[in-house]
Design a protein around this nucleic acid. Structure first.
Lengths: 212, 212
DNA sequence: AGTTGTGTTGTCCCAAGGGACAATAGGAAC
DNA sequence: GTTCCTATTGTCCCTTGGGACAACACAACT
């Protein structure tokens, strides 16, 4: 179970040759004759995996796949394989987040190195993504009102100020605050703030500005 | 004052031609015949700037410069210019954080685009770096003891627990805590935690582990 | 009509945080 | 030796936060 590799290439003989090579190396392999097919059956990311993608194919190009995958929130690392490697394109691909960009034919060592890095990266990304998803789920469980209180609390506002700003009594804020802590699954303000920070909530400006 | 450009290239005629082109475009330009000279006079980063670097030079190569600069904490974006552009090298350079990788001769539009992006990026990096430096300076002003208290406080420990763990009375912790807030320049626990988060303190494990 | 979710507010009480004012003790620097 | 920094601890008192228990208003859904 060292990982799953998705190969996308319109050249059938290349696909199967590559598949054999990688299976020999101990990977689980799936092949796709077109990018569309990959996008249609979005690979699950429950185990380390990566995508080997031919850059130039009929239909969707490799770069387009990169964009689409990113849009869908996929964290699958991409390794481009192409017969027409040019610098311009490789730079664009890497800047867009691809793990690597290799020219066909690709040496086994180089390929396996890249795959190893991609798998490691995917492992790390998956963990981060999982934690982030959990945080976002907690956040989504808040009612709008609770969400407002949450934001003000983690900005260091005290109940009294929050009550004033939201036009409620301090007691009410206390109640909301209590439920926020509960729903977010934390026991201390410190944890709540830490969570807010990781959710990127503390960077946004909140239309306010004044107040100590 | 749209920015400062540092050109490093061993080819004198190329240097001066490029310098003229960029000055015409409104940039302030400095040239260096060797990478070592650039490293010897580390460019100040008080205004937006970037480096145009020939990849292949006698002495230090462009890639080595990239490493050295990173080691010294420079945030200056690098744009590689090279006559021998190959995919392998370009991928490595971009993965190492270079802003762009262009082949000589380079078209004006392409070059100015890259420079524009580099300047924008440098502006952003500088702001971040400045903030981070300020945070680190605050942190460094803490005594070892205060630092300990700081770490426990932002992890949500209450004074009583901290006192127990550090073998002091609650009153003492209160005193340290007070000075920590003062030195870090914050008024609320929320701000303190936020600062700790940005300092990367909340990710490290603290040898403890138990406790709620 | 009854249930559920959300927002609201109350009282009582205790724990935790924080300011004010003050003092002791040891080590390092001058 | 005197001074400065750091660490330590005290008391008094007020503010904040939070738990327990309870209740009311309103809208949406069944």
């Amino acid at each position: 179970m060292s990982g799953k590799i998705h190969i996308v290439d319109d050249d059938a003989s290349f696909r199967s040759a590559l598949e054999r090579r990688l299976k020999r190396a101990g990977y689980s392999v799936t092949t796709y004759p077109s990018a569309q097919l990959l996008l249609d059956h979005l690979p699950d990311e429950s185990e380390p995996a990566c995508i080997l993608l031919d850059l130039r194919m009929p239909g969707l190009s490799g770069m387009e796949v990169q964009t689409r995958l990113a849009q869908r929130g996929s964290t699958l690392p991409l390794i481009f394989l192409t017969g027409y490697a040019d610098v311009r394109t490789s730079v664009r691909a890497i800047k867009a987040g691809a793990e690597d960009f290799l020219a066909k034919p690709v040496g086994s060592e180089q390929l396996l190195d890249a795959i190893g890095r991609a798998m490691a990266r995917h492992r790390a990304l998956r963990e981060q993504a999982a934690e982030q998803d959990e945080r976002r789920a907690h956040l989504a469980s808040l009612t709008p009102r609770e969400r407002q209180v949450f934001e003000l609390v983690v900005r260091g506002k005290i109940n009294k100020q929050i009550a004033l700003q939201l036009g409620a009594t301090e007691r009410t804020i206390k109640a909301h605050r209590h439920r926020v802590m509960e729903k977010m699954g934390v026991q201390s303000l410190a944890e709540l703030v830490s969570m807010a920070e990781r959710l990127g909530i503390l960077n946004r400006v909140s239309g306010d500005g004044k107040q100590t």
